[in-house]
């Protein structure tokens, strides 16, 4: 991985760590911090590798005959498969106490995403479509102001993190924090996507699917609460 990407990855990890530490003994049980960190880290690494392999296959490169290519993350990571793989990994790792653990990890996961997006400053990849707005940022050597779209996304994700942390202290039904976090991540991506520049068609439908899944999980949590009057278990 190139140094600029390592910088973005470090920002993502820092975001996760800060929120986990912040919530220790508050929104989460203090002794759960280590296991939640392991869960998030495992999900992030699996997601990154699976997304990279999917990108290689999509581009026509066989990962079996060119395993070294997997490390060249800048060459592309398929967002859809990476997100699905990370989510599936989190579900498998947290399966023994699924919803409470996912709820405990969800704000930190959003913070990790926010850190990764803000890491565009290290990667030199913050800018999107042109804009005449006063905060538009030009490329070095260019006079064209552009939306700092990755920073918009990071800011919106941070808003989600703060809201979820506050809501979590009110002990909502299990699953609802996870559902809302998932839906929020999908929504942030969907609303910022028109401001991004890319090659080929964007996978907007996938972000819509993420929002729908998040809504379904949150609704399931609320409905389940009606039939189980006990409060959520601590992770």
């Amino acid at each position: 991985m190139e140094f600029s990407l390592l910088g973005a990855a470090a920002a993502g990890l820092a975001g996760m760590y800060v929120v986990l530490r912040w919530e220790a003994g508050g929104g989460n049980a203090a002794e759960s911090t280590r296991s939640l960190w392991d869960l998030l880290l495992t999900a992030a690494i699996v997601g990154l590798v699976v997304g990279r392999v999917a990108s290689m296959l999509g581009g026509g490169t066989n990962p079996l005959t060119h395993p070294g290519d997997i490390l060249i993350v800048r060459g592309g990571v398929d967002t859809r498969t990476a997100a699905a793989a990370a989510l599936l990994t989190a579900v498998v790792v947290a399966r023994r106490n699924l919803m409470p653990r996912l709820d405990a990890a969800a704000p930190a996961a959003l913070a990790g995403l926010a850190g990764w997006q803000a890491g565009c400053l290290a990667r030199g990849a913050c800018l999107g479509t042109p804009t005449g707005l006063p905060w538009g940022m030009p490329q070095p050597g260019s006079a064209i102001g552009r939306h700092p779209v990755e920073l918009y996304a990071a800011l919106l994700l941070v808003v989600g993190v703060v809201a979820l942390m506050a809501w979590k202290r009110r002990r909502p039904p299990p699953g609802t924090i996870t559902g809302v976090a998932l839906g929020w991540a999908g929504a942030v991506r969907l609303v910022t996507e028109p401001l991004r520049l890319g090659i080929g068609g964007g996978p907007e439908w996938w972000y819509g699917a993420g929002i729908a899944l998040g809504c379904a999980v949150a609704a399931w949590g609320f409905l389940r609460r009606r039939t189980e009057p006990d409060g959520p278990a601590q992770p």
Partner: peptide, 17 residues
């Protein structure tokens, strides 16, 4: 070094403008 999608799309957009 390796060029990523965002950088390539951005530079092409700059060229076209």
């Amino acid at each position: 070094g390796v060029i990523d999608e965002r950088t390539l799309a951005l530079q092409i957009d700059e060229l076209l403008r």
